[in-house]
Design a protein around this nucleic acid. Structure first.
Length: 291
DNA sequence: CCCCCACCCTGTCCGC
DNA sequence: TGCGGACAGGGTGGGG
């Protein structure tokens, strides 16, 4: 489940079920789920057995288990990954890729992923406790390490479209296509405006809207349009009812009544209000004004 | 550095 | 019913 709120919902569910428990068995199906684990699935499974899950952590859309001794298991959901706590007697899902069982018995944990864009990998943790392989991912707005002023400065220095910058996980993490569109709608900014063309207070406000909308979504259990996006118990969130822009093509804008438009941007759909979020008149590279 | 594209996969929906 | 195409919340790597 893609964006920060949905991943945080999963993190919380996982924390309840696996924190402090010891892995007794790990079964991996196929090689794709562990493709980012260079040593291969057998190595991954054997190195996991017997380890204790000290904590379940998250940065942006990435989850990982702190397995002590400076080692972590990254669990990334990609577009369609699910982590499900289930009775071992239940039949296997069609796209079951991994099964974890824990000391003391009880329900098992399954990694199910229709498209297999997600996956598992064992990696060393850095001094800050973050896996080395995701050191390029910036802190997300719900972390202590999040430096709002630094992110604003970074955004201000970019001539790229502001939506592209919001989606750049090396600038600020956790924001995906839904919450980027919602933040832009709240801030009344068109996503194709160059970030550098917005004032720092405006960029700060935009970031705060992104933070706030993700907090609200978390409070509703995340956004679920279909059964693909569920928590560890298979339940959906309700934030889809609160979306003002994403997926609302043709529906009246909640502010001004103008029908929400849909445009293509970065090979995906963008939703915005034509009146509240006018397109930039002209997108011009910085420096092109020099005579 | 920046941007665009292809790619990694499967499923659903819509028009013909 | 079938078929082709578009589309879906993710990220990475290569080439220009």
């Amino acid at each position: 489940m893609p964006e920060l709120p949905e991943v945080e919902v999963v993190r919380r569910g996982l924390a309840t079920h696996v924190e402090g428990r010891r892995l007794v068995g790990v079964e991996l199906r196929g090689h794709r789920v562990a493709r980012r684990h260079v040593a291969g699935p057998e190595d991954l499974a054997s190195r996991l057995a017997g380890r204790r899950v000290a904590a379940v952590r998250r940065r942006g859309k990435y989850l990982w288990w702190d397995l002590e001794d400076g080692v972590g298991l990254i669990l990334h959901l990609g577009m369609s990954g699910q982590l499900l706590v289930e009775d071992p007697a239940l039949p296997d899902e069609k796209h079951l890729h991994a099964r974890f069982s824990f000391e003391g018995g009880g329900p098992e944990l399954r990694f199910v992923d229709q498209r297999t864009f997600g996956g598992l990998a064992l990696t060393d943790l850095g001094h800050d406790g973050v896996p080395l392989t995701i050191a390029h991912i910036a802190p997300d707005p719900l972390e202590d390490a999040y430096d709002r002023a630094a992110v604003v400065r970074r955004m201000k220095g970019k001539d790229s479209a502001v939506k592209r910058v919001l989606l750049d996980q090396t600038v600020v993490s956790g924001i995906g296509n839904i919450y980027a569109d919602e933040a832009l709608w709240r801030a009344q900014v068109h996503g194709e405006r160059p970030a550098s063309a917005l004032t720092k207070p405006r960029l700060g406000t935009l970031l705060d809207h992104a933070t706030e909308v993700m907090r609200e979504a978390l409070g509703e259990g995340g956004t679920s349009f279909d059964a693909l996006y569920v928590n560890v118990n298979g339940a959906s969130g309700y934030f889809d009812r609160s979306l003002a822009a994403y997926g609302q093509e043709g529906r009246p804008c909640r502010r001004c009544g103008t029908p929400i438009r849909r445009e293509q941007f970065m090979n995906r759909s963008s939703f915005s209000c034509p009146r509240c979020q006018p397109r930039p008149r002209r997108v011009r590279a910085a420096g092109s004004a020099r005579a």
